[in-house]
Amino acid sequence: MRGAAFILWRLSLTTFLQQLFNALALGGVYALVALGLTLVYGVMRVPNFAHGGLYMLGAYFAYAALSGLGVPYVAALLLAAAGVALLAALLERAVFYPLRNAPHVHSMIAAIGVLFFVEAAVQLIWGPDFKQIAEPVPGIVNLGGVIITWQRVLVIAASVLVVLGLNYFLKRTLTGATIEAMSQNREGARLVGVNVNRVGMLTFAISGGLAAAAAALIAPIISVAPSMGEVMNLKVFAIIILGGMGSVPGAIVGAFLLALAEVFGGFYINLDFADVIGFAMLVLVLAIKPEGLFRRGT
């Protein structure tokens, strides 16, 4: 009897750990996408609804680089990140910078226009069907019964690396410090003599690059489809509202909270609604604590 209970316990622990690793990989991806969104909001005060579109575009760029150019996976990832970063910077120059003094709803509507355009364009070029990207390092790691694919290990490692790199950039370089200063207080940054104009473009580029890298990282695990952008949009917006709009640590914590809720909620409750668990959480939290979990410093 005790033996059987022990085996059951071991089994459920193994399952639990396995799900935990899945959640960590997912959370890493969410964090990368949410960080860009929260930085753009912090600096430009634009809720960039096109962000999910940039993420989706990143997956397709990686797919195109792999299948079209035949480059290795890492090169495809970097190409996708660079390509989307460039596009995002262009987008900032052409659309969001000119709209910076217009009512906020104008830039929001423009962002929606961009989202729908990107989606329609991708559908036109690559078709509505799912695309598959092969895992660069196939196979699994077995850690005492807990089985993880190499791709998930890669995702976790890469996202930790990128987040650390971003943190270094924000804290230790002048440009990064400027971005952070602006996301805290735009007026203050202007007083210090920072070139506010270029920072917006740079922030957009970083946010696009991060989203594309995240997409290229997760693409081998999920399938690539035009609709993946809208779903991701919902999740990362839920994350940054929960984390406090514009807050960097809030976005990271929010990303992992959402991933945990989704993986365990989806596993133990109902898979159909796993994609909107984030929003259910959001509704709940807002009903209790309207300013989000981590209020921005005033």
């Binding site: 509507i109 226009g113 989202l115 729908f116 355009f117």
Partner: peptide, 19 residues
Amino acid sequence: DYQYIVFGPLLVLLVMFVP
């Protein structure tokens, strides 16, 4: 057939130039 290819940029141009 190409509604959103046209509608997307149209929306952007509208808020930018003829809000």
